[in-house]
Design a protein around this nucleic acid. Structure first.
Length: 939
RNA sequence: GCCCAAGUGGCGGAAUAGGUAGACGCACAGGACUUAAAAUCCUGCGGGUGUAAUAACCCGUGCCGGUUCAAGUCCGGCCUUGGGCACCA
């Protein structure tokens, strides 16, 4: 089989006959819209990952077409971007030259792979006839107040000479190139995506997407429900508002923190603290994102010399600034509750701020008529041998720590020290930590009483001069003192109170869980949820605060200081106002430049185009915006343009959109989860709100293809070029059908899979085996062959279902099983031979077109009807089922389908090996699962 | 640290309303064809005990425990790998 000749022949045929042209106005058939993530046309051409997703959609499209659907299967190019610009900077050529060349290569390669795209619908985001409408949508966003020009801190990358959006910054470095990114205040174009947070969140419930991707979007949107609380600043007219999700802990707030950038800082800072505060603010502004996150273990901050009034108890609490409070989230100010928040706890420890516990964990089971007591539990650690002191009460209560009831006029610490002396004789210990109080319910057998105790935990350490004197144990205290390891305690201390106390001792910090409120006046005794809602009502009644929802998602930074992107179609007028261009002035085309370099100061290359720059609008002078749009602009709506790509009056006709949207199947990588896939949803939702598109959600079903790894199991790329595979090399060696077939057979579409050179050859061998069956074996005849009937129908069923659900690897397995069966037969009925070729066609279109022609057909197989199967021909009359004795397989029997249980049991019991295993035992029962298995239970 | 996936032969992977684990392929071994090799076709192929060969038995789906007549599949607790978030109050 000469794959080269066959491929060239059919590429030409499909083009000349317009086999895959979509009649977009034909509404008579059901529609199917399959979308691939269009590629950035880089200089290196397709990589091994491209054909994977593209083949998957192609298979489904080819089958759907044969099933009678009107299929829309377009392709285009995401052609604005950095590499073209860098090429232009280097060579002085226009980036479009480079881009168009690459598009040509990509198109040639995509055609070589046999994808059934309708190339008449091709779009390129850098084509003015396309970006005219990108600009038009932006203009609408601007006029509706959703695209804004604001002064804000941005991610500035000096190396790239541009700002970046949040999803383009990874660990404080640029996604592209890995250059450092710093925060910088700049006038910026942003899109108010937070306005759509709730809609984007709710929309996720309506679409068939991978749960993991939905979860990533949910986390990125980051909805949290809480409250705003206003604090007055003591002895000043000022106040500030904080956002908190834990207003139930307000009684435990022992300080407040403003972000360093908070506007109130300069107004309330005391004279003495002024210099320190200003130095700290300066320090923070110079920190990069990387420094801010990497240094997060060590809290820093400065006291302002001012105090806030806690609105629920009128306590004065100090106000600090610290960069652990972000200006960009909530109100840029917090109330700090160190007892119940990890970060506040760390900060309070470092700055010696009081920690007030207002919530205690509840252990044990509550009971009526409990007696209340206060008590202590003391954990003592010996650093010399890494062991802890326990009392082994043996049968009376197992292993416990030192415990006891607090007497009147005794503090918990005094009680602990007294109990330690009495029970162990230890003296002169170092107190490491006082642990959070625990609310414990238990039943005392010796006293026949229920108790509810509030227990304070203590964690002590032996010191060098710790001594042990004779303890004064009481007579009924029958325990032995034992020093044991951490592991023994975890395994042996079963008492909830003591186990929990030990957990606190091992891991001291804030108590962030649920529990019982204490020290909180009207909240005492309530759990977290009850206390939150009661506190919100309390605050709202007194006008001190209110319920509030906050989102983590930030404004989408929508400008780049670069050349190769869509010009932002607005003019800055002399009077400071900004106007959008008229529709008739769109597209605003990029001017040609001599030098495309960006500037290190953040000035766009477009500033150099002086003729283009200066305009007069209605007699007023103005300058054009010189930033361009980010890469994700053009890709945020391209799926709409495919439906009506040549429309000059509107971005797409509404009636056509109504018929063709939403996209039925979208296949692409998971790396766009919080970029493109979120931005597209936002634009579509916006256009829906404007009545310009008919459906809220653009992509009904989304599937991520996995990564094709190198044969070493590691991501292909520059690091291991020797393990990388160029798909075009495979096409040249074995043909496009083999590449498509192999990539589909490797494993599940969604999984990452390593490349295997011998695996490719295996796929090639199978295709050759099919080719030989049809060209040299002489088995095909007009006579029927009953021996193949069942497997024939079964194969149609399995393959059809598996294509529909994108389980291509198991579909291929079935195709192989069928061919293996045919090889064993002398006679291969013609109707089966033809239907098999149809089933294989979506995966291996070139070879199957050629065979189809050899079978005597004049027309392309692509227009043939899809094979049908007969369910009744698949059902077996006799089947073999397993026989187990006590769950172990001992034999198998052949039964007719749906045979009576009695007969099945009789047959099963007769089996020799079954008898053997029943010998000397009594039959308990026989479990028969119809047509599946028999299990005989004996004793 | 938190959230989400996934761990099955030498390898890629099948099998989940719980019901004969290892389909299909790769690699490997043997055979046929050939002067020979390649290609092709046929057969075998989880590990072990056992047998002349069968038969039969034991162990096996990351680890430990549980539910069940029956667990790769369900539940609890770990371990490992991959992905996402990362001072979000």
């Amino acid at each position: 089989m000469n794959t080269k000749l066959i491929e060239e022949k059919w590429i030409k045929y499909w083009e000349e006959h317009q086999t895959f042209k979509t009649d977009i106005n034909d509404f008579s058939k059901p529609k199917f819209y399959a979308l691939d993530m269009f590629p950035y046309p880089s200089g290196v051409g397709l990589h091994a990952g491209h054909p994977e997703g593209y083949t998957a959609t192609d298979i489904v499209c080819r089958m759907k077409k044969m099933q009678g659907y009107n299929v829309l299967h377009p392709m285009g190019f995401d052609s604005f971007g950095l590499p073209a610009e860098q090429y232009a900077i280097k060579t002085g050529n226009h980036p479009a030259v480079f881009t168009n060349e690459n598009i040509k290569t990509f198109k040639y390669q995509l055609k070589s792979l046999g994808f059934s795209y309708d190339w008449d619908r091709e779009v390129s985001t850098s084509d003015p006839s396309y970006y005219k409408w990108t600009q038009w949508i932006f203009k609408n966003l601007f006029n509706d107040g959703l695209a804004k020009y604001v002064d804000m801190p941005v991610n500035w990358c000096e190396e790239l000479g541009t700002v970046l959006s949040n999803d383009e910054v990874i660990n404080g470095k640029s996604e592209r190139g890995g250059y450092p990114v710093v925060r910088k205040n700049m006038k910026q174009w942003v899109i108010d995506i937070p306005k759509y947070a709730e809609k984007l969140l709710n929309g996720l419930d309506e679409i068939d997407w991978p749960e993991s991707t939905k979860e990533i979007q949910r986390n990125w949107i980051g909805k949290s429900t809480g409250a705003l609380v206003t604090f007055k600043v003591k002895d000043t007219p000022y106040d500030f508002t904080v956002f908190t999700t834990r207003c139930d802990t307000l009684f435990g707030a022992t300080y407040c923190v403003l972000s360093p950038e908070h506007e109130l800082v300069s107004k309330i800072t005391s004279q003495e603290q002024k210099e320190k505060v200003e130095n700290y603010q300066k320090e923070c502004s110079l920190k990069s994102d990387l420094e801010r996150t990497e240094l997060n273990k060590d809290k820093t901050g400065v006291f302002l010399g001012a105090y806030a009034i806690n609105p629920v108890n009128n306590e004065s609490i100090p106000i600090y600034i610290s960069d652990y409070v972000l200006a960009s989230y909530g109100t840029g100010a917090i109330m700090a509750v160190p007892a119940h928040d990890e970060r506040d706890y760390d900060f309070a420890l470092k700055f010696n701020i009081p920690i007030i516990q207002v919530l205690e964990e509840v252990t044990g089971t509550p009971h009526e008529n409990e007696e209340k007591k206060n008590s202590i539990v003391a954990v003592i650690y010996n650093p010399q041998n890494d062991k802890y002191l326990t009392l082994n009460w043996h049968s009376l209560g197992g292993r416990l720590f030192i415990g006891g009831t607090i007497k009147d006029n005794e503090t918990p610490l005094e009680c602990a020290l007294r109990e330690i002396t009495e029970e162990t004789g230890l003296q002169n210990l170092e107190l490491v930590a006082t642990l959070p109080k625990i609310n414990h319910h238990y039943y005392a057998y010796n006293k026949n009483k229920y108790f509810n105790i509030e227990s304070t935990g203590f964690f002590f350490k032996l010191k060098d001069d710790s001594i042990m004197i004779e303890p004064k144990k009481e007579e009924d205290e029958n325990f032995t003192l034992e020093w044991v390891s951490k592991e023994e305690i975890i395994n042996e201390v079963k008492d909830e109170l003591h186990a929990k106390t030990f957990a606190y001792a091992l891991n001291p910090g804030a108590m962030v869980g649920d529990g019982n409120h204490i020290n909180s006046e009207f909240l005492n005794g309530l759990n977290k949820e009850e206390a939150i809602s009661k506190m919100i009502s309390y605050l709202e009644e007194r006008n001190l605060g209110k319920k509030q929802i906050n989102y983590r998602i930030r404004d989408w930074i929508f400008a780049r200081q670069r050349y190769w992107g869509e010009p932002i179609p607005v003019v800055h007028l002399e009077d400071g106002s900004i106007v959008a261009l008229k529709d008739s002035e769109l597209p605003l085309v990029l001017p040609e430049l001599k030098d495309y370099s960006p500037s290190k100061t953040g000035a766009s290359p477009l500033l150099k185009a002086t003729d283009w720059l200066n305009v007069t609008i209605d007699g007023q002078k103005g300058v054009r915006e010189t930033s361009t749009m980010p890469g994700s602009a053009g890709s945020s709506w391209y799926f709409l343009r495919y439906i009506d790509p040549h429309n000059e009056k509107e971005f797409a006709n509404y009636e056509l959109l109504k018929h063709w949207m939403p996209v039925d199947l979208y296949v692409g990588g998971p790396e766009h989860a919080v970029g493109h896939l979120l931005y597209s949803r936002m634009w579509n939702n916006y256009l829906y709100d404007k009545g310009l598109v008919p459906y809220k959600e653009p992509f009904k079903k989304l599937v991520h293809q996995g990564m094709i790894l190198g044969s070493n199991g590691i991501k292909m790329g520059k690091r291991y070029p020797e393990y990388s595979v160029n798909p075009m090399d495979i096409v040249n060696l074995y043909g496009a059908d083999t590449l498509r077939f192999y990539e589909m057979f490797m494993g599940p579409l969604q999984a990452d899979k390593p490349w295997s050179d011998t695996g490719v050859i295996g796929s090639k061998k199978f295709l050759d085996r099919v080719w030989n069956l049809y060209t040299t074996e002489n088995k095909i005849s007009s006579e029927d062959n009953k021996a193949l009937e069942k497997i024939y129908h079964k194969t149609i069923k399995k393959v059809t279902e598996d294509y529909e659900t994108l389980n291509f690897n198991t579909a291929i397995s079935q195709l192989m099983i069928f061919i293996n069966a045919v090889y064993k037969e002398k006679n291969y009925p013609r109707y089966m031979a033809e239907d098999f070729i149809k089933l294989l066609n979506p995966i291996a279109p070139f070879m199957t077109e050629e065979i189809w022609e050899k079978l005597g057909h004049q027309e392309s197989i692509a227009n043939e009807p899809w094979p049908k199967y007969d369910e009744t021909k698949i059902v077996d009359e006799e089947i073999e089922i397993g026989v187990q004795v006590n769950g172990k397989l001992r034999s198998s029997i052949v039964i007719s389908v749906d045979e009576d249980d009695e007969k099945v049991q009789e047959k099963a019991l007769k089996e020799e090996n079954v008898q053997k295993h029943m010998e000397g035992k009594t039959l308990v029962k026989v479990i028969i699962v119809k047509n599946k298995i028999v299990n005989i239970v004996v004793k």
